[in-house]
Structure formats: structure tokens, C-alpha cells
């Protein structure tokens, strides 16, 4: 792993939201992980576990409560001149879950895609601008006739392709995809996932792929992080995580997925996660520790010894 270059480093990131009466929601409560150049990191967990908030804080949509996000060694949240900020934002882009809500209905597809090109001054002439738009449309499997239409004229899968084209327009290095396929039909999901993988191969993109569909996450990701109540409880390579889940929450989550095979479904047993099963003592420190190379689990000192004994 040492030869891999870190693109993003997330260090003890916290994102708290005040909800009034002096109470706070700890949406993200101290997560630490790295994203390597050219990889896809999957982030899974149930709704409310903080996976989307993590993504949004990384890209700077929220100011972090504490902790640090480094992109190529530069802090995302530190004070910057507007020029520096613009440069940073060009390198990171986002694809959203709802292709119906994330495209401005009053702009043509060409204007939606070219907005980033205009802001960053990436095209000098009108011809060059349209040439870029046509290229991008073809890259994502649409054609140039689509440029002058409006979002409502497209299906969900096509709109998601427009969202991807918009993200690609400024030639980013890193894309956060927040549930990009959840709103799409099964047959269309595969089209969009194949497109994302193809673009990654061609352009060397790095993805943070946030989703709750675990089978699709496993398929697209190199490594996967599992979140539970604002904490990352397990992080490992995709195969390893599915084959040897260690944290009881990961085990419960994996055992709950129905598989498209009637025979295994008839015998599948589900395990249930109960946070009290750890029997942590009051104030016992929990740390994210490496059990086997590249496989991290949130555990206490005692559990660490136990897991080490079992799994290595």
C-alpha cells in the first residue's frame, strides 16, 4: 500500500449540527481515512449514519466542526483567497442522488454542462465552448442534439448522465458520487455504473462512492468503509470486507442483504447488531486499529487482542 499516493487525507473529521436548546447532532464523529489516487472508496451505512454528511464536508459544502481534510496536501477548510478556492473546487466535483432535483429546469443542457467551463474560463471562444459540450455529451453516451434541450425532456438515467457530464466539464481529479444510482431502475443502474468505471479507466479519476446498495458498492469499489452513527466502524478492501467482516455491525449489515437466489434465501440466517454486545466499560477508549494489513476495525484494546488472535 505504501507506493500508493494519497489524494485525500481525512483526519479526525467531526461535523456537529446544533439543533437548539444547546443540543447537537453528531452527524460525523471523528472519522479518519485516506483516499488513494485512482481508487474508488465505497462508503456504506444506514440512513442517518453520516455517510452523506462526510461526503459533503470533504468537498467543503459544510465547514467542519473540527478535524482536517487534505486534498493533495492542501487543507480544504483552511482560509484561502478566492483564487485558491476556485482552483480547489475545480479539482473536486460531486454527482447527486436525485437527477430530477439537481439540474436547473430553466437551463438548457448545454448551459448546465458549460457552467463550470464558463466560471473557470476554460473555453476562449463560443465554438470552443460548444465543442467541449458536444465532446462531454458523447463521453457520457448522449449526443450533440441533446445540447439545446431542457432537463425535463430526459429520463432519469439520461439526467444522471448529464450530471456526470457536468462534473467532468472542469476536468476534476476527484468525484464524490452521493447515491448516484439509487433513483434509477435496475437495468439503467448498470449502464451508469459501467459508464463511471469506463471514465475512471480513461481519465484516472478517484471516486468516493456513497450508497446503501451493498452489492453495487462491492462491485464498483476497491475499498469500502462502513459507517455507523457517525463513526467508521470498519474499513477494508472490498473482497476482504465481504469475505471476512470483523465488526459485528458489518456482519449484521451483510447478513441482512437478500440475494437473488431462492435457495440461499430459504436458509439465510440474519444476525442482529446490538451495540451493548461489546460490553465496553464506561469511558473505554475505542480506536480504529489495523487487524490484518489494510483491514481496520473500530475496537477496544481488549477486542483488538481478540480479533488479532482470530483473524491473523
Amino acid at each position: 500500500m505504501a507506493e500508493k499516493q494519497k489524494l485525500i487525507e481525512i483526519k479526525n473529521l467531526k461535523q456537529y449540527f446544533p439543533v437548539g436548546h444547546g443540543q447537537v447532532i453528531k452527524a460525523v464523529d471523528g472519522v479518519t481515512f485516506d483516499i488513494y489516487k485512482g481508487e474508488t472508496l465505497g462508503l456504506v451505512g444506514e440512513s442517518g449514519c453520516g455517510k452523506s454528511t462526510t461526503g459533503r464536508t470533504i468537498i467543503g459544502l459544510y465547514q467542519a466542526t473540527s478535524g482536517e481534510v487534505l486534498f493533495n496536501g492542501v487543507s480544504v477548510h483552511a482560509k484561502k483567497t478566492s483564487q485558491e478556492l476556485k482552483q480547489l473546487k475545480r479539482k473536486m466535483q460531486m454527482i447527486f442522488q436525485d437527477p430530477y432535483a439537481s439540474l436547473n429546469p430553466r437551463m438548457t443542457v448545454a448551459d448546465i454542462i458549460a457552467e463550470g467551463i464558463d466560471i473557470h474560463g476554460l473555453a476562449k471562444t463560443q465554438e470552443e465552448r460548444m465543442k467541449r459540450v458536444y465532446e462531454l455529451l458523447e463521453t457520457v453516451g448522449l449526443n450533440r442534439e441533446h445540447a439545446n434541450r431542457y432537463p425535463h425532456e430526459f429520463s432519469g438515467g439520461q439526467r444522471q448522465r448529464i450530471g456526470i457530464a457536468r462534473a467532468l466539464a472542469v476536468e476534476p481529479e476527484f468525484i464524490i458520487a452521493d447515491e448516484p444510482i439509487s433513483a434509477l431502475d435496475v437495468s439503467i443502474q448498470a449502464q451508469v455504473v459501467n459508464l463511471m468505471k469506463k471514465l475512471q479507466r480513461e481519465k484516472g479519476l478517484t471516486y468516493l462512492f456513497i450508497a446503501h446498495d451493498l452489492s453495487m458498492v462491492k462491485y464498483i469499489s476497491d475499498r469500502i468503509g462502513v459507517m455507523y452513527f457517525g463513526k467508521m466502524v470498519e474499513l477494508a478492501e472490498a473482497e476482504e470486507l465481504y469475505r471476512n467482516p470483523i465488526h459485528p455491525y458489518t456482519k449484521a449489515l451483510l447478513s441482512a442483504i437478500p440475494l437473488p437466489d431462492p435457495e440461499t434465501e430459504r436458509v439465510r440466517r440474519r444476525t442482529v447488531y446490538d451495540p451493548s454486545q461489546h460490553n465496553y466499560k464506561e469511558g473505554e477508549p475505542l480506536e480504529f486499529r489495523e487487524i490484518t494489513p489494510g483491514h481496520f476495525v473500530l475496537c477496544s484494546e481488549e477486542e483488538y487482542k481478540k480479533y488479532k488472535a482470530i483473524y491473523s
Binding site: 448498470a190 452489492s215 462491492k218 440475494l259
Partner: peptide
């Protein structure tokens, strides 16, 4: 439909 889904195992 069956082929477009990734398999977990």
C-alpha cells in the same frame, strides 16, 4: 435483469 446485477458472492 438477472445479468445486470452484480453478484455479492
Amino acid at each position: 435483469l438477472l445479468a445486470s446485477m452484480p453478484s455479492l458472492d
